[in-house]
Design a protein around this nucleic acid. Structure first.
Lengths: 173, 173
DNA sequence: CCCTAATAGTTAGCCTCCTAATCATTTTCG
DNA sequence: CGAAAATGATTAGGAGGCTAACTATTAGGG
């Protein structure tokens, strides 16, 4: 049985990391490489699982996040601000808002102060949608880390944060 | 200054988690929720950073992973096997292979044993491409976890794995 | 044996996100 | 003040991934 068959789904082993490093005579630390690769694989899986989940409510991760952000901001926000806080391009926000608007979860209004600007408003229907999804959503998130104690969660959060800080450097370089 | 402006880029705070939970009178643990949300945010950022990086070599994360997988398997593999080990649909593999073939990094051959089957072969050019990228690639991965000691990396790996095991349940449900 | 069911690969069409270009307003400053 | 630069939003077009549908071949059961 092949290695990959026994271990499907983007979860590489330490052996694989070691082999790859040695193939080119590099001196990288296999464990360090494994951490990075596993984190990426997990991230990708999580993103996809989330997309699958939200699509069952006719939403998507992006649309849901936009709705939540809107509610956190008291129900109104400009597309630019949304792009910034969601860490997504303005063009993407335009698309997300268009979709949400089509389903009546959000509405567009012209900005009163700035002639160029627009304001995205959470509709009653959008707020209700969020309310209906809340319990299930948070239960799902909680269940992800069910297996960890409070201490372990704190620890994980700390380690994760220290890794996250390095991501910026990767793109900038 | 708004909270999101001070903390851009999909890195929610404990406060935000608490607020959202309380808004609907739920009793979820804010810390647990935070861990899950941060992990997803980090994953998404990592995936995007990776895409940016590979696009500079005319590749993508998916194409690179396919190339590596091919090399790990001795340079040949069927599209179905690739789909399985990359955890991606067969249709996606078709697309990845087409792209790689166009650039001469990979070639398609008909399977000798199975009339339906095909075999994807790593070309000399594909192997060279991998060789050229290796040092930089592994250095990048290593630098991601530079800030962690070997013990911390082991710990992180363990915690991450225990979380990853739960992802399946999320989608299945 | 042959007809049905399973399997391999591809195609078509959708969604998410991106960058680059465009158009309209504001702001700045010479 | 008026021209140039900056800013807000949208549009156009591309890449990655997915599912569903289609074609070709192989395997199985009556």
């Amino acid at each position: 049985m092949r290695n990959e068959d026994a271990n499907p789904g983007a979860a590489p082993t330490l052996e694989q990391a070691r082999t790859q490093i040695e193939r080119y005579g590099l001196d990288a630390d296999p464990q360090a490489v494994l951490v990075a690769v596993r984190l990426m694989a997990t991230g990708a899986r999580l993103v996809r699982a989330s997309e699958v989940h939200f699509s069952r409510s006719g939403l998507s991760t992006g649309r849901y996040r936009l709705l939540v952000d809107l509610e956190d901001s008291g129900g109104e926000k400009s597309p630019s601000q949304l792009a910034k806080s969601l860490d997504v391009s303005r063009a993407t926000v335009t698309g997300l808002v268009s979709g949400l608007e089509r389903e009546g979860l959000v509405a567009r209004r012209a900005s009163a102060e700035d002639g160029r600007g627009a304001v995205v408003v959470l509709t009653a229907r959008g707020a209700r949608q969020l309310r209906e999804m809340a319990a299930d959503h948070f239960a799902r998130l909680e269940s992800l880390v069910d297996g960890l104690t409070a201490d372990e969660r704190g620890l994980f959060l700390d380690l994760l944060e220290r890794i996250t800080r390095r991501i910026g450097a990767l793109t900038a370089e």
